[in-house]
Computed example of a mutant assay.
Amino acid sequence: MAYDENNIFAKILRDEIPCKKVYEDDFALAFHDINPQAPVHVLVIPKGPYVSMADFTAHAPDDLVAGFMRAVGKTAEELGLAEDGYRTLANAGENAHQEVPHLHIHIFGGKPLGPMLVGHALGGEGPGGY
Results as ranks from 00 to 15, higher is better:
residue 1 M to L: 13
residue 1 M to C: 07
residue 1 M to I: 11
residue 2 A to G: 12
residue 3 Y to N: 00
residue 11 K to M: 15
residue 11 K to F: 10
residue 12 I to V: 03
residue 13 L to S: 04
residue 14 R to Y: 05
residue 16 E to S: 00
residue 16 E to N: 00
residue 17 I to G: 00
residue 18 P to T: 12
residue 18 P to L: 09
residue 19 C to P: 04
residue 22 V to N: 07
residue 22 V to R: 10
residue 23 Y to L: 14
residue 25 D to N: 15
residue 25 D to K: 04
residue 27 F to N: 15
residue 27 F to H: 15
residue 28 A to W: 03
residue 31 F to V: 00
residue 32 H to W: 11
residue 33 D to E: 14
residue 34 I to L: 14
residue 34 I to N: 14
residue 34 I to Q: 13
residue 35 N to V: 11
residue 35 N to Q: 12
residue 35 N to M: 11
residue 35 N to C: 08
residue 35 N to F: 12
residue 36 P to N: 00
residue 38 A to D: 01
residue 40 V to L: 04
residue 41 H to A: 12
residue 41 H to N: 13
residue 42 V to L: 03
residue 42 V to E: 06
residue 43 L to E: 05
residue 43 L to W: 09
residue 44 V to W: 05
residue 48 G to R: 09
residue 49 P to F: 05
residue 49 P to C: 07
residue 50 Y to S: 06
residue 51 V to I: 05
residue 51 V to F: 02
residue 51 V to Y: 01
residue 52 S to C: 08
residue 52 S to G: 06
residue 52 S to P: 08
residue 53 M to T: 13
residue 54 A to I: 11
residue 57 T to G: 03
residue 58 A to F: 03
residue 58 A to H: 13
residue 61 P to W: 01
residue 62 D to L: 14
residue 62 D to P: 13
residue 62 D to F: 11
residue 63 D to N: 15
residue 64 L to Y: 09
residue 64 L to S: 14
residue 65 V to A: 14
residue 66 A to V: 15
residue 67 G to Y: 05
residue 67 G to C: 04
residue 69 M to S: 14
residue 71 A to E: 01
residue 71 A to H: 01
residue 71 A to Y: 03
residue 73 G to V: 01
residue 74 K to L: 13
residue 75 T to W: 01
residue 77 E to H: 07
residue 77 E to L: 02
residue 78 E to I: 03
residue 79 L to T: 08
residue 79 L to G: 08
residue 82 A to L: 13
residue 83 E to Q: 15
residue 84 D to H: 10
residue 85 G to V: 03
residue 86 Y to A: 00
residue 87 R to F: 02
residue 89 L to H: 02
residue 91 N to E: 10
residue 93 G to I: 08
residue 95 N to A: 13
residue 95 N to V: 11
residue 95 N to S: 12
residue 96 A to V: 11
residue 96 A to Q: 08
residue 96 A to L: 09
residue 98 Q to P: 09
residue 99 E to N: 02
residue 100 V to F: 05
residue 101 P to L: 04
residue 103 L to A: 01
residue 103 L to N: 01
residue 104 H to E: 04
residue 106 H to S: 09
residue 107 I to Y: 01
residue 108 F to N: 02
residue 109 G to V: 07
residue 109 G to E: 05
residue 110 G to M: 10
residue 111 K to L: 09
residue 112 P to T: 06
residue 112 P to F: 00
residue 113 L to K: 02
residue 114 G to C: 08
residue 116 M to S: 10
residue 117 L to R: 07
residue 117 L to F: 13
residue 118 V to A: 10
residue 118 V to R: 13
residue 120 H to W: 13
residue 121 A to R: 10
residue 121 A to T: 09
residue 122 L to W: 08
residue 122 L to T: 11
residue 123 G to C: 10
residue 124 G to N: 09
residue 124 G to R: 09
residue 125 E to I: 05
residue 129 G to P: 03
